[in-house]
Write a protein that binds this DNA or RNA. Structure first.
Lengths: 156, 156
DNA sequence: ACCTTATAGTTTGACGTCGAACTATCGTCA
DNA sequence: TGACGATAGTTCGACGTCAAACTATAAGGT
């Protein structure tokens, strides 16, 4: 029996490191999301904007299920967000002619405009960031974060 | 007038970089929080566990306002979480004898046990992580994340 | 053809979170 | 001493999120 036994399940240094990592990431997500929220126009939430932006960047016509997978949220969550956007007239949700279970999500012209306006509102928010956090640093840690995200996604 | 004018407010490469960064961070926060949630005992949420853990690591007797500041949440949010923990008997909230506006939050023995049990449940969850994401990588990006968190906190 | 299993989407109830409005107390300054 | 601005905490309504239960359609297998 080891000299300093007892206490069970003392976290290893690696564990402590990971805890710190997830803790920092959690707080950054909270602070940045909050900050973006405040400047978004049209009563858009971050979730709603992300969806609009996704459709502009990667094209529309996706099914809700595929969108849910892309954003790593449950189908129920996606249903909710899509309903909000549809009620604002920013997207259109059509039945899928090939598969009666599915639907297809399309961006409307007002949705396109709202996304552009949101983009414009967000850019100034980023303009002062380089002072405290240079783009080079962002570029430096991004690959590691991607790797972590991919691992978490694959092993769950 | 530039040849390819129009389109207004095209994001700079740096902006795109930052967007990616916050996007990855958001998804990691979501995935990791979700994952922790699933294994936590005693119906503990991540927010509740974080609070208990904080009291073990940094001591109890803090005021709700100070806790709210430490966790970067609003006072209302902290009120809510404290009420949940108190109803479970994991903390005790006493009036502050020096300042009638304030309260003081203390960890109870059951709260201590719950925190230990949660810690024990969380550790195995971290055990497979080093395969895909070595601790050295975590250590490498942690300082940058801290810097970002601190900047966001200071400039809001 | 049927029966079974998988997939798409919705609904419900709970939680954390926010901002805003509100009450109570403290501290300062005239 | 008294008024006023700052601070502590609560409440309310809204949102995104989750898990779980449910309906409907699709796809395979025997």
């Amino acid at each position: 029996m080891p000299a300093k036994a007892a206490k069970a399940a003392a976290p290893t240094p690696a564990d402590t490191l990971y805890f710190q990592l997830f803790n920092e990431i959690g707080i950054i997500a909270q602070l940045s999301g909050n900050r973006f929220q405040k400047v978004l126009p049209h009563e858009l939430t971050v979730a709603q904007f992300s969806l609009l932006n996704h459709m502009v960047r990667l094209g529309d016509g996706w099914t809700p299920a595929r969108l849910a997978a892309a954003f790593q949220v449950t189908k129920g969550t996606m249903t909710n967000t899509l309903q909000k956007l549809e009620s604002k007239g920013f997207i259109r949700v059509d039945p899928d002619t090939d598969d009666a279970r599915s639907k297809r999500v399309f961006l409307t012209p007002p949705g396109q405009s709202a996304r552009d306006a949101a983009m414009k509102a967000l850019t100034p928010e980023l303009s002062t960031l380089p002072e405290g956090f240079p783009p080079a640093l962002a570029a430096e840690i991004l690959p590691a974060l991607e790797r972590l995200r991919i691992w978490l996604d694959a092993n769950r």
